[in-house]
Design a protein around this nucleic acid. Structure first.
Lengths: 144, 144
DNA sequence: GTATAATTGCAAATGATTTGCGTTTTTATT
DNA sequence: AATAAAAACGCAAATCATTTGCAATTATAC
């Protein structure tokens, strides 16, 4: 449950700020993510947008959103991509997702564990870490 | 670098112990993983097996190995699957990969951080965690 | 050894994601 | 607010990793 009043967000301006064109489709798309409190699969995105939308357009928009730091990808248990809003600290040039995702292996719901801080170093024996993906698989409350 | 003397391992018996048939192909395949100290992509597997092998057969064997707890899958930065040997504590019924993978985003080399113990709980607000995937992306020593 | 079950190899199917391209919408400029 | 340039859209077709069907071969169990 998010406690942001979505009514007060101007999604068009949000898109512009991130270097993306304001189209009615993309405004609906970014709003959909803000209304959802977990990640979305392609099909969930398409179902969430009542009107009939073209998958290629959705994929292109999702990739544009990702390249511009608005969303990021999370693979589910079958390695299919899901998409989730980025944290505030993301920017077009640097994605930082140093937080865990809880992924239900039954219903595929995803939740961000924003307060879960993993003690990750920058350097492991000379390997330089620039990004981390932590996925905790299991069962959500509804699926146990 | 692994310090196991691969000459002393009977890969046929290893397969049988894990409920897999001993075929000459599968013995070569499990040996290839033991000789490698990182994860392998499909193409790396096929190149590693001199003889010409059928991709479908490789995929089937890899899936069988995974179902029987010998290997597990790690997605690379493009979400393509790579395959890596399981730790000792894996069994056919339960995969436990509570360790991190270092994944070079240039050359796709993968390394296990076996001594990296992440403080993961069993339960986050009612979500029951049964498995964790931690992927640290960055640059390996050779690619910096 | 022989029968049953599993694996192999080949070709074809599947399914998610991407691409080409002509049309429409947005952005930047006057 | 008109217009030219750039980006996005929508449709169909292409791509590419992975899976599946099936007949032939090999392994396992009795």
């Amino acid at each position: 449950m998010k406690f942001i009043d979505e009514e007060n967000i101007d999604f068009g301006i949000m898109l512009s700020k991130n270097g993306l064109s304001q189209t009615s489709f993309r405004k609906k798309l970014i709003k959909l993510f803000h209304l959802s409190n977990s990640s979305l699969s392609i099909d969930e995105v398409i179902n969430g947008l009542h009107n009939n939308v073209d998958k290629a357009t959705v994929y292109r928009a999702l990739n544009a959103f990702e390249e511009n730091g608005l969303i990021h990808k999370v693979p589910d248990k079958d390695n299919l991509l899901r998409y989730a809003l980025c944290q505030k600290e993301c920017s077009p040039t640097k994605h930082s997702h140093n937080h865990a995702h809880l992924l239900c292996d039954k219903c595929n719901s995803t939740y961000c564990l924003n307060d879960f801080k993993i003690p990750i170093e920058n350097n492991y024996n000379g390997f330089i870490v620039s990004n981390s993906k932590i996925i905790l698989e299991g069962r959500c409350v509804d699926c146990q």
